[in-house]
Design a protein around this nucleic acid. Sequence first.
DNA 1: CATGTATATTACTGTATAACTATACGGTGA
DNA 2: TCACCGTATAGTTATACAGTAATATACATG
Lengths: 114, 114
Amino acid sequence: MPRNTTKKLNRAAIEKVAEVFRVFSEPTRLQILQELRDGPHSVNELVESLETSQANVSKQLRILYEAGVLAKEKCGTQVFYSIEDDIVVPLCELVCDKLNRDATAQKPVFSFSI
Amino acid sequence: MPRNTTKKLNRAAIEKVAEVFRVFSEPTRLQILQELRDGPHSVNELVESLETSQANVSKQLRILYEAGVLAKEKCGTQVFYSIEDDIVVPLCELVCDKLNRDATAQKPVFSFSI
DNA sequence: CATGTATATTACTGTATAACTATACGGTGA
DNA sequence: TCACCGTATAGTTATACAGTAATATACATG
């Protein structure tokens, strides 16, 4: 008996789900989100926190913004980004739990036997 | 005042988190996981469900297996894969909720104004 | 208007990887 | 041993994309 009663998603829907995961699959983007958990930050503030170029931060912010994860607000010459959709928090908690499970389980990297 | 009391992860830890998201960022891998939610399946069974080559299914199974998401068991010539770490279920629920929120909010794709 | 500052964009490069074809490997039965 | 089936891997191609340098744009201030 199947343990799952959920209707299966078609390929198009699955691709949208995959796309969301892809947005969170980049370390630099996750770092940006981590900084923004403290509250809104301007682009330059983020550039100073992360160790990468302004162009790169701007590019990753765009990706997060277009994914609906971030909001932005202009304030003079500056642009302040903030977290719009807080999905990232529970998402990362689940992933961290998994990583901790894996670390605790001490999955053997080498298992040579005769 | 920061709304977040969680300690910040360093770059190396963040890269591990990103790596987990990357595993789930491929539609074919998500399709495989969706099939396996019904219970264990052999490689050929999965090839028949998905519309891709056996080689590709094998490759994606390997990635999921090495990420600790799947378990495998040989049975004669066949290999049966099953879900080892059920993280994918709550993870996808969160993502689907987000997609539904986005769809409900009717975020404008085009916003042309004069 | 000219200059400076903050952010965004463009064009490019290098790298990673999905998917394919062909082939190898491992087990089973004749 | 041979032929067959199920699975895995190697090698290749095409594509996606992160990061960079240079440039553009937008706003502020003198």
